[in-house]
Design a protein around this nucleic acid. Sequence first.
RNA 1: GCGGCCGUAGUCUAGUCUGGUAGGACGCCAGCCUGCCACGCUGGUGGUCCCGGGUUCAAAUCCCGGCGGCCGCACCA
Length: 491
Amino acid sequence: MGRLAKAESRYDALMRLALERGFFQPSSEIYGDAPAGFWDYGPLGAALKRRFIELWRRELVRRDGMLEIDGAQVLSRSVFVASGHLESFVDPIARCGRCKAIYRVDKLIEEKTGIHVPERASLEEMERIVREHDVRCQRCGGELTEFSHFNMMFRLGIGVGGGEAYLRPETCQSIFIDFPRLYRTMRRKLPIGIAQVGKSFRNEISPRQGLLRMREFYQAEIEVFFNPNRVNDLPRARPLMGYKLRLQPEGREEPMMITCREAIDRGLVSSELVAYYLALIQQFYEKAGIPLERIRLRQLGEDEKAFYAVEAWDLEVETSLGWVELVACNNRGAHDLGGHQRVSGQEMVVMDGDEKVLPHVFELSLGIDRSLYCILENALDERGGKPVLRLRPQLAPIQAAVLPLLSREPLTTKAKEIYEMLRMDFDVEYDESGSIGRRYVRQDEVGTPYCITIDHQTIEDGTVTIRERDTMTQIRVKSEQLPQILREMLT
RNA sequence: GCGGCCGUAGUCUAGUCUGGUAGGACGCCAGCCUGCCACGCUGGUGGUCCCGGGUUCAAAUCCCGGCGGCCGCACCA
């Protein structure tokens, strides 16, 4: 229908803009064997990502006094024994011997025989059930073979011996395994937030939709370690208790606006601590330019939750492709520190006041690439048939363009002088080609919020105009004040 | 992985059925013009026709295989 066609073209329009103007592109694209699900950021995309992460640092890490670390991407097998990923981050599969179709064995058994196969069931057990009940290929009736677990982690061989290790499927495991030392050395008290930005890797069966589902992707994760007996004793949460969350608890069709305090009192959110971090993450996306009505915090049901989660909220943003999950807000309970304590033998218990406690964990696991897609798609607008990227100024890859009104002396020399004055402190671009209107349009397309224009009056009195992208209005300022004015306008 | 549709300059596309010199528009570059919002002028740059193999005197076109994209099934940040 019309709605769908419009939705597709919006995605297409953004992908085209991204390819043409250097936001992102398929990795290995010049080779025919380029695997799907890997993307390279171009100069503008890399800058946008950098600014997005900087906003995240400002609004979450620094605001809440968190620690930020940077862990290895390759982690030992034991890490994933303890985390449960080796066993639980898998799908049991089998292949039809005749037509090669691949099936989720547990789902196929349940569908054909009604037998619910427990997640822990071994492959041998599943194969036995398949033989006993003569479960066959749905398509051609062939016999099922090649029973195996498909683990979504990328397995590596380390060194000449090929020691077993894995690329991390989420960044947070290094936070958990580093926790004991961090806690001893960094002199903090519970609750303590530890953050990390970095790559994670998942061997998706079928990556698609550009940045939305990739095999190698960026996460910005925050793990808050807290005393489960003191989840409603968080002074820094108090100022936000009157803030309204756009909450969609389990079983509801539509999100509702409700204050943190009321959500806690009505039992929709389990604690002050959880409500507080839901509020922070919602505020963060508002500051990144997503309108509140396109944001929701949706509670996940039992069957939707990750294997480690005891309470789970997804921050989702509405796009032309539907609601996209950007942040998994999971109460992981004692799953992680408990698991690592058991497997490693390393004590994870800490003192909180005079109480000995194994901290629980609440996480804000944010998908960066997805977020950037949503921000870009949301910012994409049109004026006179040409794209305008209405990015928040603090996220714009190019912060200002310096343009002589005419490509003629002495305007060009003066404009280059001003460009030189700004280039070390700002991401600025100089452009004198074509007409001034054409250059404005070119900057609008990549979301440059301000264009500084040098005209004849500049030569007379040293003033320039600053043209604002969204309103196209201009103000005239002294050129020597530009650094200070830009700095103010860009925060 | 399966099914449907698709793959031609940076982008959009004509040509594919019916095999015979790959064409246009936009963009980009250079110059001209230009006192403020693309769509004035001139010239220029542009293509492994997704990749590999086959049929043929000759393949963008026909056949086979692969890769990738979009939409569905399943999973997720």
